[in-house]
């Protein structure tokens, strides 16, 4: 058997990690990135149709269309899937390129704040349009 560590071993510290490692997790974001991707593929045709219906309308017309239940639900699903997807994607980019630990943590936190703010702002607007106030 090969030694697991020590100067003779060519295995990296990462390679020596057993099973799922210290965190016991790690594929959640990978899986959610795929789930939200497939969701958006399913939603792209309804979204394009909604956008085409809305083209050239004035505010009153657009508000009435966006407030109708099927369209509001399509918009909400797309907003949730896309913002979740982009949040995970940006985190991967930050983890790839930001090497300073503190800057990395601050960037990941900023990414979370940005994404949650956009998602809730969009949801607020959609609910407001649906309730007609």
């Amino acid at each position: 058997m090969q030694p697991l560590s020590g100067p003779k071993s060519m295995r990296t510290p990462l390679g020596r990690v057993r099973n799922l490692g210290a965190s016991h997790t790690g594929t959640k974001d990978f899986w959610r990135q795929r789930v939200t991707a497939v969701a958006m593929i399913l939603l792209i045709v309804p979204m394009v149709v909604v956008m085409m219906i809305l083209l050239g309308r004035n505010q009153a017309g657009a508000a009435q269309i966006l407030g109708s239940p099927p369209i509001a639900i399509i918009m909400l699903l797309f907003v949730v899937a896309s913002i979740w997807h982009m949040k995970i994607g940006m985190q991967v980019i930050i983890e790839d390129y930001v090497h300073d630990e503190k800057t990395k943590l601050a960037s990941i936190m900023a990414n979370n704040f940005f994404s949650v703010t956009l998602a809730l702002a969009a949801a607020y607007a959609i609910f407001k349009l649906s309730s007609g106030v």
């Binding site: 505010q59 508000a63 966006l66 896309s82 913002i83 969009a122 607007a125 407001k128 349009l129």
Partner: peptide, 13 residues
């Protein structure tokens, strides 16, 4: 670009 989508939704509402 999602900022624009959200700006547009807020504006309609």
């Amino acid at each position: 670009g999602t900022l624009l989508l959200v700006w547009w939704l807020i504006a309609v509402s």
